[in-house]
């Protein structure tokens, strides 16, 4: 466990850089994390982040891409456009959550 400073926020992260304490997350932190990975947050991104955090709080698990797609009625293709190349991991990162554990 280590800390890193992003956008003036000191954050507790794992070896890869994912936040390990969901309470350190805020909208300002999300914007700073998104900037690090080249994503500009618009309303669709924010809705997805809200869904991820709510599901994680409810179930203790980060939702998979499939879960986000079915739960929010957003086509997977759109998720790849919003968070390019590795959408499941990128959205988890910006939402301040661990990588999803599920296979699908």
């Amino acid at each position: 466990m280590s800390t890193t400073t992003i956008g003036g926020h000191t954050l507790t992260v794992d070896d890869e850089g994912f936040l390990t304490d969901p309470t350190e997350w805020s909208e300002e932190v999300a914007a700073a994390l998104a900037e690090q990975i080249g994503v500009t947050l618009e309303s669709e991104h924010w809705a997805i982040l809200g869904f991820l955090r709510a599901e994680h709080a409810r179930t203790g698990e980060t939702p998979t891409l499939r879960r986000v797609s079915t739960g929010m009625q957003i086509p997977v293709k759109r998720l790849f456009e919003l968070f390019p190349v590795k959408p499941a991991k990128k959205m988890a990162y910006v939402a301040g959550l661990p990588k999803p554990r599920g296979c699908v």
Binding site: M1, S2, T3, T4, T5, G17, Q36, K89, Y93
Partner: peptide
Amino acid sequence: MTTDIGPGTAPLVPSFDT
């Protein structure tokens, strides 16, 4: 154990694209 990566060092960010 906590390692502090303070200001002045590059932030630790997962390498998604590389």
